[in-house]
Amino acid sequence: MSDDAGTPAGPPSRPKPDPVREQLLGQLAAQRRHLLDALDGLDEETAQRVLLPSGWTLPQLLSHVTHDDELFWVSGVLGGDPRAAELLAANQDGWRLGAGISAADAVAGYTAECGRSDAVLAGIDLAAPVAWWPDGLFGDWRPATGTEVLVHLLVETATHAGHADAVRELIDGRQHLVLD
């Protein structure tokens, strides 16, 4: 195709990237890595240590984030994945699903679910309404858009990365970010 002067027009223009979307997705990726870093280098016995009064282990925490955050919020709420409804119908939550899970299985499950989440996030308009919401969950509150869900997921992931940091520091003194 060419313009009126016969000059080739070149490839069709692409929509401009959304810098806010890219910033949110970049921060989410960083917090996911941060969360996984807490398990880095730990043997199974150490990863399974209970150090907080709540009684959960690092693999249970990762299982919780896998199911109650990645699966529910992204695959379910944004993508309409029926696994999220099945999780609620079975009255299961990520903490109980994580009981007895190995660290390697927790990491593999989280990594796989993050991959599914990334596919959902790549294919949706964040300004659009959510695909699914269970009646009565959280009272009258419900997220209106994908952006609200993405921000919620980012906050949840960062919060749990902080929990994992505290446990890792109790295990061996390692701190995720040490400022000199």
Rank of each mutant, 00 (worst) to 15 (best):
G136M: 13
L51D: 00
A85Q: 15
S54K: 13
L137C: 05
P15T: 10
A90S: 15
T145G: 00
E169N: 07
V155N: 10
R49V: 06
G55E: 09
R168T: 01
T7H: 09
L58G: 04
V65S: 09
A29Y: 05
R83S: 02
Q48K: 11
G26I: 05
D140R: 15
P82Q: 11
R142K: 15
A99P: 01
G79W: 02
H34E: 13
V167F: 01
E156A: 06
L28Q: 00
G173Q: 03
G98S: 05
A131Q: 11
G80I: 11
A127L: 09
A90C: 07
A106I: 05
E148F: 01
A106C: 07
D125G: 04
W95M: 13
K16C: 14
I171K: 03
D81C: 04
L87T: 03
L153N: 03
R168G: 02
D69H: 12
L25W: 07
H34I: 05
G173F: 00
P53C: 10
W73E: 01
L71S: 03
P143R: 03
D81V: 03
L177F: 11
Q27M: 11
P82T: 06
W73Y: 13
G136L: 14
V20Y: 01
A85L: 14
T159G: 04
V130Q: 05
M1Q: 13
V155K: 10
D180I: 02
G10S: 08
A158G: 01
V151Q: 12
D69I: 12
I171W: 07
E113G: 04
D18Y: 08
E22T: 00
E86G: 09
F138G: 02
H176Y: 09
Q23L: 15
P17T: 09
W95P: 01
P59C: 01
R33T: 13
Q48W: 01
G6T: 08
D172E: 06
W132T: 02
